[in-house]
């Protein structure tokens, strides 16, 4: 996995609560057997009109937000399905960091496993960011995972708190499976113990 230390980029707004995984990547695009190539379908039903043209009504489509790598959005982002195609699509489109007041559990976890940093800020802080972005479309933020800080060139600073296990994983681009396989002796002990239980449940 690609490590995440510091990223600086354009912030794109998605001013909706409860954005679900069906919106992030509609199901008709889940049929690939690879992890890549999903970015073109991100927010598909919102981004494009019926005849396949970019929909002007969708804020993120505006010119200043092209090439954005940070997404700000509202509460409960990523609710719904466990599909990892959602973070794959966000990543493939170019997002490395998503800022929201809250995230759905499975989605939050899935982000870390794919090199995306999900950041929880308070409603008020997110409001501030929406205001900044709208005042100056193309507005940039720097997200520093090492320092656990987010800041802008015009002096805004936010302290962020990322669970330490996930933070270490992301900073080093660690592969969870390798981390677990290093505990082989513990897994084997557990399996032996489980086999000895008088009523094996398995």
């Amino acid at each position: 996995m690609e490590p995440f230390k510091v990223t600086k980029g354009i912030v794109a707004p998605l001013d909706l609560p409860n954005v679900d995984t069906d919106q992030i990547i509609p199901k008709q695009f889940l049929k690939r057997i690879e992890r890549t190539g999903f970015g073109q379908f991100l927010f598909f039903d919102w981004r494009f009109t019926k005849d396949g043209q970019p929909d002007k009504k969708f804020e993120m489509n505006a010119a200043p937000y092209q090439g954005a790598s940070i997404l700000i959005t509202r509460a409960n982002f990523g609710c719904g399905s466990s599909r990892e195609h959602a973070p794959w699509a966000l990543m493939d489109y170019g997002f490395r960091c998503i800022i929201a007041p809250s995230f759905a559990d499975i989605f939050y976890n899935n982000c870390f496993k794919n090199g995306i940093l999900p950041v929880r800020l308070s409603e008020a802080e997110v409001d501030t960011l929406f205001k900044e972005v709208r005042q100056a479309p193309g507005f940039k933020l720097t997200v520093d995972l090492e320092q656990e800080k987010i800041f802008s060139d015009n002096g805004l600073t936010f302290t962020i708190k990322i669970p330490s296990f996930q933070r270490t994983g992301l900073l080093n681009g660690l592969d969870d499976i390798a981390v677990t396989l290093a505990q082989e002796d513990k897994i084997r002990d557990f399996e032996l113990k489980q086999l000895k239980v008088p009523t094996p449940l398995l």
């Binding site: 399905s81 899935n110 969870d176």
Partner: peptide, 13 residues
């Protein structure tokens, strides 16, 4: 429910 990375994790470990 789990994501695909976790599916891989369970398969392997």
């Amino acid at each position: 429910g789990i994501g695909t990375s976790e599916v891989e994790h369970v398969l392997a470990t």
